[in-house]
Amino acid sequence: MKKAISINVNGTPHNTEVEPRMLLVHYLRDALALTGTHVGCETSLCGACTVLMDGQAVKSCTIFAVQADGSQVTTIEGLAQNGELHPVQEGFWERHGLQCGYCTPGMIIAAAQILERNPNPSQEEIRHGLEGNLCRCTGYQHIVEAVEYAAKKS
């Protein structure tokens, strides 16, 4: 039995009928073709699927699309504004905060949330804030530098 939902994603309203068990990440990827949000573990441990839901960083692999009904979702595709990279995106590019890029969208969303809550975080606070996101390539040091870059920039 499908259920009608209304979700605003990256500023665009979407009215869709979905299976109640459809995960938010599959809704974004399969129904809306926003494939920037990745699935890394399906258990909310790796953070590759992190998106902003009503301003909160959430793991979209363990939220049903129906739970996001009526909410505003921002994915990695919606972070840049008017063609300008978000400072965190810029920081990742400037400081080599990514290698394979798979964890990157979730990592950038999580980092943006850290800065929103604390515009001048210490390295320790950045590392603590990124504990819900795994990266296997970078060893995190360049990610920490990327977030510091963004903090200075914004």
Partner: peptide, 21 residues
């Protein structure tokens, strides 16, 4: 030198296998 592969990846516009439809 900043990576030329990064712009697509930081925007979520790269294509991994599951992104190919």
């Amino acid at each position: 030198v900043k990576r030329t592969e990064d712009p697509r990846l930081i925007k979520g516009l790269g294509h991994y296998v599951d992104d190919i439809r």
